[in-house]
Every structure is written in C-alpha cells, then in structure tokens.
C-alpha cells in the first residue's frame, strides 16, 4: 500500500509538471485528488491493515495528498503567470506613434507682458487701475498739464470724436482720474495697462492702436531716487539681471524732472550695433516726477505730496524681449505668431 501511494505521488507529480494549461492541470487535480481518484481508492483498502499500521498509512496518504496539492498549486501559479505574460506580450503597442493632442491655447504676447508687469508691481504694493479708452480732452491733456494750444500736443496727434472727446493717446488719464478720486489724499500706487490710439500710419514700427503700461506713485516724500530704484527692479525683472540701466533727462509736460530710461543692448552687449543704433543703449520708457500742476489739478497739495510716474509701450517691451521685428504682428493674430508665446518663462 505504501508503495502504491509513493507510486501515485510520482505519477501525479510527473503529470502536474507536464500539464501545459490550467485546464490540463485541473484535470490532473480531479483525477488524483477527487473523490473517485486513485488515492481514495487506495485508502479504501485501509480496513485490511493492522491497528498500528492504520494511522501511519493515513498520515502517509495525507502527506502524499499535500505534496500533490502543493505541486499543483505552484504549477498553477506558474501557468497563470505565463498566461499573463503572454497576454501582456500580445498587448504591446508602438509607443512612438503620436499621442492624442490636447488643445492648448495661449496668452497674447501683450497680455503676457502686461500680466507679468502687473504681478511684479502688485508684489510691490500696487493695484491695477483701468479707465475708458474714449476720454475727455480734459483728462487726456488738460489735467496732465497740456492746455489747449500747447506745442507738445503735436507730439501725439489724436483721433478726436468730438471737440471734447477723443481716443486716449496714453493711459495717463487713468492716473489723473485715480488721483482725482482720491481727493488729494495719499498714497496712490497704481499700474495702468490699456489700449491707446494715435494717428499713425501702420507700418513695421508704428501702430494706430497700441498697448501702454503706466505706473504712478504719489505720497508724502516720494523721491526721484525712488523712481530710479523702482525702474531698476522693473528692468532687471523684465530683461534680466545682467542688463544695465541708464537714465537720461528728457521732457514730458506732465513730469518735472523728466526721465528717459535706456537699457544696455543685449544684442551687442553695449558695443554698438544696428538694433541700438550704435549707441549700446536701447530706449524703453519715459518717466519723471509728477509735475506740480498735475498734482494740484487733481486736488493734491504739491507742497506736501510728490510722486513719480512712468510709462512704456507693451509692444516695444515685447519686441525687445522676444526679438519681434514688426509691430503689426500683434494685431493680425496670425496663429504662427500667437502660438509662440505659450511657454512659461522665469
């Protein structure tokens, strides 16, 4: 009997090992361990054994069963794994095929510049002020120390609608309005982005509509050195830490003293090239200390309050920053242009 059991064990193991599928393995399981299987059959002869041999034989039979079960178990795992691997192998794809595109939109480059500047100045305590694009002559000119007949009005030929209303030629009227709203009380700290309009024929460097960004700070004890420091923060943020800035005296009716700011030319590193007209410097903005007439007209006591203002064209900043050669690109909305500005920058 003992021999028969060992024989069965050997037979079963060899069948398990040779099973090539889960189905075959199951057949092996049923044929050896089933109620009608050979081991059960063998055990039926237990009655003929002596009382001492019976438990021994029983233990042996259980041992054989366990061995077979274990082998089936491990074979089953092996087969299952193989099946999985086979399935995975059959599922392999060509990962070099193009992915399903996700549509990506993008900021217009001017919005990119404007938002970057807004965020920079918000960080320095400024709020963003906006105002109408159709303005009163008063806010566009008179409140900014440009009375009717002032020769500097020549500098910005304008689109008038009536004698009193025009398309604003700069965003400075927003400054005038904000100051007026503050009733002569400080402090004012604003940045004003917006569209402005001038009577220019559109060409590579002129546009009858463009985007301006201006800033204004009015408080007690605002100094010209504060303007210089603020402009440096702006220039380094916008154009990089390695750029030098230079302030030159200039003239604007609404500021005194007035300033024009140049940054060192990135193309030639200051040596002089065609972009900087051989000067090594590129003009990027106008600024100055708010003219006392402007403060007084807005209700501020110019003995007590001082302020600075600065203004720049977003197109010019973008053209310099990204090397864009034609201002008309900003308004034709060619997607070959627009798609180039979706990448974030530091």
């Amino acid at each position: 009997m003992q021999d028969r059991l060992k024989e069965l064990e050997g037979e079963a193991i060899s069948k398990v090992e040779s099973a090539s599928s889960l189905k075959e393995l199951n057949e092996v399981r049923v044929s050896f361990l089933g109620k009608k299987g050979p081991i059960t059959e063998v055990l039926k002869g237990m009655g003929k054994l002596s009382a001492e041999e019976r438990p021994k034989m029983g233990a042996l039979a259980n041992e054989v069963r366990d061995v077979i079960s274990m082998r089936i178990e491990s074979k089953q795992q092996e087969l299952e794994e193989a099946a999985v691997n086979e399935k995975l192998a059959s599922e392999t794809i060509d990962i070099t095929l193009p992915g399903r595109p996700v549509r990506t939109g993008s900021h217009h480059p001017l919005t990119k510049i404007v938002e970057e500047l807004e965020d920079l100045f918000i960080g320095m305590g400024y709020t963003v002020a906006e105002g109408p694009e159709v303005e009163k002559d008063y806010y566009n000119f008179e409140a900014l120390n440009l009375p009717k007949g002032h020769p500097a009005r020549d500098m910005q030929d304008s689109f008038y609608i009536t004698e009193e209303f025009l398309l604003r030629t700069h965003t400075s009227p927003v400054q005038a309005r904000t100051m007026e709203k503050n009733n002569g009380q400080g402090p004012v700290k604003i940045i004003c982005p917006g569209k402005v309009y001038r009577r220019d024929n559109d060409d590579a460097t002129h546009s009858h509509q463009f985007m301006q960004i201006e800033g204004l700070v009015v408080d007690e004890n605002i100094r010209m050195s504060d303007l210089k420091g603020t402009l440096e923060v702006f220039a380094k943020k916008m154009f990089g830490d390695d750029r030098e800035i230079r302030l030159r005296p200039s003239f604007f009716p609404f500021t005194e003293p007035s300033v024009e700011m140049d940054i060192s030319c990135k193309i030639c590193g200051g040596a002089g090239c065609s972009v900087c007209k051989k000067t090594g410097w590129i003009e990027i903005l106008g600024a100055g200390m708010v003219h006392p007439n402007v403060l007084e007209m807005a209700g501020y006591d110019s003995k007590k309050y001082t302020g600075f203002a600065f203004g720049m064209g977003a197109e010019r900043i973008a053209m310099l920053k990204y090397g864009i050669d034609d201002i008309r690109h900003f308004y034709t909305d060619d997607i070959r242009f627009l798609t180039q500005f979706s990448v974030p920058e530091e």
């Binding site: 709020t127 408080d219 210089k228 420091g229 603020t230 302030l247």
Partner: peptide, 16 residues
C-alpha cells in the same frame, strides 16, 4: 542722473 541714488519708496504701506 547716473549719480542719483537708487531707493524704493518708504512710508505708508499699501496692499497690492
């Protein structure tokens, strides 16, 4: 202008 110092406004703080 190049000899003017560089500072930032001091005084009333404002919330941007």
């Amino acid at each position: 202008y190049d000899l003017l110092p560089k500072t930032l406004p001091i005084g009333t703080s404002t919330q941007g």
